Simulated scan of single mutants.
Amino acid sequence: MLHTPHACQFCGRYVLEVEGWAESLKPGHKVLVPWDDDPSVFHGFYHWSCVRASEFGPKFRTELLNWVCQKDQLITVRGEDGLLHDTVRTGLGYTRHLATVGGGDIYESPRFDRWVFAETAGPVHFLDIDQARVLSEGKPLRGNNGGRHAFLPEDPGDVVAGWGLAEVLDFLQVRDVYQDMIDRFAPEYSFWRGSPKGSSYILVYSLSAMRPVPSDIAEFFQNYLQRYTLKIPEPVRTNGDQ
């Protein structure tokens, strides 16, 4: 397990987070480390492309689904004291397996209008009803661009405020990891603010790109939503709501 700030747990290189491309897992989710027989919790950052390319991608997928597709369960984890402890993992409860499509499996929440698409290669996509509708209409789905914090290993100086995404990635020496996103998925990057912290730097930014959801997922929702009944009815709009 790598503990360098923002290091990908699969390749060791820097992770600049962007939904659907490079993300992180919090230790509170209690997903187990996929490459270690000793039960420890996976937490930290990862590039989705690294998950897909890794020999541990299938095991990582299994662990993610153990968390995502089950209810609360008892697991055994080695604690900081070096001893094994039983602990409850709060599952997300996507227990309904709807379909197996070309790129993976689709699961549904029995309580909410939400779905998960688990790629066969490892990564997991979360989708709400609005996002499923966008896909069903054949439109590309853009990821969330909300403000994010990144701990840069070195202080780039005031010039960072004027950089575009490519310059940030070049500074972090990971442009190659994001090249497919840059070339084909229309990323949008904005510098918000930043401040030095010792020899390092705290960057606050927004970054989104079109999410790489396979076309067969869109085809699935085109058919499925035609007969789907909302679990949580949408509020009735009045003229004053428009």
Score class of each variant (00 low, 15 high):
G57P: 00
G57V: 01
G57F: 03
P58G: 15
F60G: 07
F60C: 03
F60D: 02
R61P: 05
R61I: 05
T62M: 02
E63R: 11
L65H: 07
N66H: 11
N66V: 00
W67D: 09
V68I: 12
V68A: 15
C69L: 01
Q70F: 14
D72A: 13
Q73H: 13
T76K: 10
V77R: 08
V77P: 09
R78P: 04
R78G: 10
G79I: 00
E80V: 03
E80F: 09
D81W: 14
D81I: 11
D81Y: 13
G82M: 12
G82I: 08
L83F: 12
H85M: 06
T87V: 13
V88R: 10
V88T: 14
L92R: 10
L92M: 10
G93T: 00
T95I: 13
T95A: 15
L98D: 07
A99T: 04
G102Q: 00
G102S: 05
G103C: 00
D105F: 06
D105L: 04
D105K: 05
I106W: 10
Y107F: 11
Y107T: 00
S109K: 04
P110T: 04
P110F: 12
P110N: 08
R111A: 13
F112G: 04
D113S: 11
D113Y: 11
D113R: 07
F117N: 05
A118W: 03
E119W: 02
E119P: 02
T120H: 06
T120A: 11
A121N: 02
G122N: 02
V124Y: 05
H125Q: 03
F126P: 04
L127D: 02
D128V: 08
I129Y: 13
Q131T: 03
Q131P: 02
A132E: 05
A132P: 02
V134Y: 12
L135C: 15
L135A: 15
S136G: 13
E137Q: 13
E137P: 03
G138A: 06
P140G: 13
L141V: 07
L141P: 10
R142E: 04
G143W: 01
G143H: 03
N144H: 09
G146I: 00
G146Q: 03
